[in-house]
Design a protein around this nucleic acid. Structure first.
Lengths: 350, 350
DNA sequence: ATCGTTTTTGGGAATGTTCCCAAAAAAATA
DNA sequence: TATTTTTTTGGGAACATTCCCAAAAACGAT
């Protein structure tokens, strides 16, 4: 906690400041500041002298001091539960490009699906005074107080993919319901009747929407719903493996599987193969997200594609709308829903 | 540039400070500060009063002010050229876990393989006064002045994967040479003689090391080197596709391919299949990195595995060593070399 | 030369926090 | 009770910057 050692250190490794420049040129810090910030009220000759010395001293402005004074960091935090699969990285890139155009920097936090980490990261981002937040929360998150800390202080928060419901925040989602509906419809139309669904935790809105799409498609085509074919699980591959095996061990096993996401679908594919069964003959499989890997495996995985980069771009745009809104004309909370698209490959028929 | 509007805004959305707390309790900011930082010299009863009010006002400390004063942000920047493939995300997670243990936050920047973006990000990270940097640079980077800005001011920089050579910085690399050697050795031992190599830009040290491993393995087993089989390219999939086709169109096409990385190898596999040829019968293929996808495709891709998380952990440890080193006992620049391991799958034989 | 205008510069406050040193209050001792 | 010791508190400086306002300098016109 004590900073004596650092103070000493600091003295040794002193970074040049505008005061150093001012002193060396016999100017005031105000003038140097003006010269460095392209302010009009400064003599051109003076500016050149300042710029020259700044360059010579390798002066680098201290953003901390500026942020403290102006109360804005021009930094946006992006929080995601993981970034091993292609989805979150691609969303982040989409958002970052949009934010960079507007002159914002991005700090990325990954909670690793841990609620505790998410809370810690949120507190840390708040302490360093990010101007806004883009979030997809963990599957454990039920309490959203750590995000309320932001909204209460007027710091905009935009959710995507996994969104905070019933609240005055903007969101970007995809049409999970229709995506799921079309996936199941496709399975029915290719002759499947016993369609299993590996669903996610029902705390996740998108998981519930996909489940509803699944149920409504069955209902619409008069396919009876067998509760033993609907399994809600924690999205880990270990559990996916166990439940797929469980389904195949049923006295009347399913002839098709609609998985909540592609990793789950791919795990299912591996299980089916390892049991000497064939895809799609013995089990047709559909995933969700259209991970690039889905096109590479054999057979190709039928999957519900979502416009990944656009999700990030939209989230960034919504955030920027809030960021540039003024107190007298605030931006209203908006929900953007992007379309999904079924991509048919070998896993549901030749 | 003008902040009038923001100043007004700020007044409206005033965040509670220790001065607010002090005023309301009739204390000085010093005492409140002590209460909040668990300083011993404060009356227990006073501390409770402060903590209570801080909680009630939803006080959140302003890290900017603290960082400005202490001249340390407890934040580390990590710069990577991309994070769509699994490699960089996994390195980042490894590093982040290690840094979090030591109480450091992480800011992630991805340069998108653009030198200009890398320079901008580096400047921005410097301006916000990160305490250290972990970097894998872009394939375009030849000028390292933007990193010298850090080292010159005594801010530690650790490179990994793509490293800055001949400089006084710490590095984490894998044994690319041996990895490549063993890959090619394996191809020779499984009966291949015309082994092509898709290499990366020779500005990248790891690319050169892999090329040397390839050449030495051929030399050791008296396999003649055919320069027309060695192609250095820019690591884009488009070019990979073109060059693989080019190789297969040769009058004497290769019977094996050692690719600089897994995405290249997978692209090659697609090309071979699309031409109605078979892997490994017509062309054996080896990749580098052991991307998880390599185990999922058909046939499985033989690849040189590297300890990905460990790379991140080691980089973090090296950085922490520099960070905790004092002026009187500085940490010496160190290069850590981690082992590689050949993982044999179907793409080089049954 | 004098006055009015414009351009350029300097001084000081403000941002939120921690640390040092001194002062005040409380507790312990004589 | 008076004195010493310990605990607790307050005041001010420092961090690097920008902005506002006033002062100074330069310029132009009479």
């Amino acid at each position: 906690m004590t900073i004596n050692a650092q103070l000493l250190e600091k003295y040794k490794m002193h970074q040049p400041t505008i005061i150093d420049i001012a002193r060396q040129l016999g100017l005031s810090k105000s003038t140097v500041s003006r010269a460095l910030t392209a302010h009009p009220n400064v003599n051109e000759k003076t500016r050149q002298r300042v710029l020259e010395l700044a360059d010579k001293l390798d002066y680098q402005r201290n953003q901390l001091a500026i942020s403290l004074l102006t109360n804005q960091t021009r930094t946006v935090g992006i929080m995601v539960p993981e970034f091993i699969s292609f989805f979150f990285p691609k969303v982040i890139i989409g958002a970052q490009e949009e934010l960079a155009k507007a002159g914002y920097n991005v700090v990325i936090c990954h909670s690793n699906e841990s609620y505790a980490t998410e809370v810690t990261s949120a507190k840390s981002l708040f302490a360093s005074r990010v101007d806004g937040l883009i979030v997809s929360h963990t599957k454990e998150t039920r309490n959203f107080d750590h995000f309320r800390t932001f909204t209460r202080k007027g710091i905009p928060v935009v959710f995507f993919n996994r969104v905070w419901e019933n609240e005055e925040v903007s969101k970007v989602v995809v049409d999970d319901y229709t995506g799921a509906y079309q996936a199941v419809e496709h399975l029915i139309q290719t002759g499947r009747r016993r369609i299993a669904h590996l669903s996610g935790p029902d705390t996740l809105p998108n998981s519930r929407s996909r489940l509803n799409g699944y149920l409504d498609a069955l209902k619409h085509y008069d396919v009876p719903v067998d509760p033993s074919l609907v399994i809600s699980y924690d999205l880990t591959l270990e559990k996916a493996n166990i439940y797929v095996n469980h389904l195949l061990n049923l006295p009347e096993p399913p002839d098709a599987l609609f998985a909540i996401n592609d990793p789950t679908a791919i795990e299912a594919l591996k299980v089916v193969k390892s049991r000497g069964l064939r895809v799609p003959d013995d089990l047709a499989i559909v995933g969700f997200s259209d991970d690039p890997i889905s096109a590479l495996i054999e057979p190709g995985l039928t999957s519900v594609a979502q416009p990944v980069s656009e999700i990030g771009q939209e989230a960034a745009r919504l955030l920027l709308a809030h960021l540039t809104a003024s107190a007298d004309q605030p931006a209203a909370p908006t929900t953007v829903t992007l379309p999904t698209r079924l991509v048919v490959r070998g896993s549901t028929g030749s």
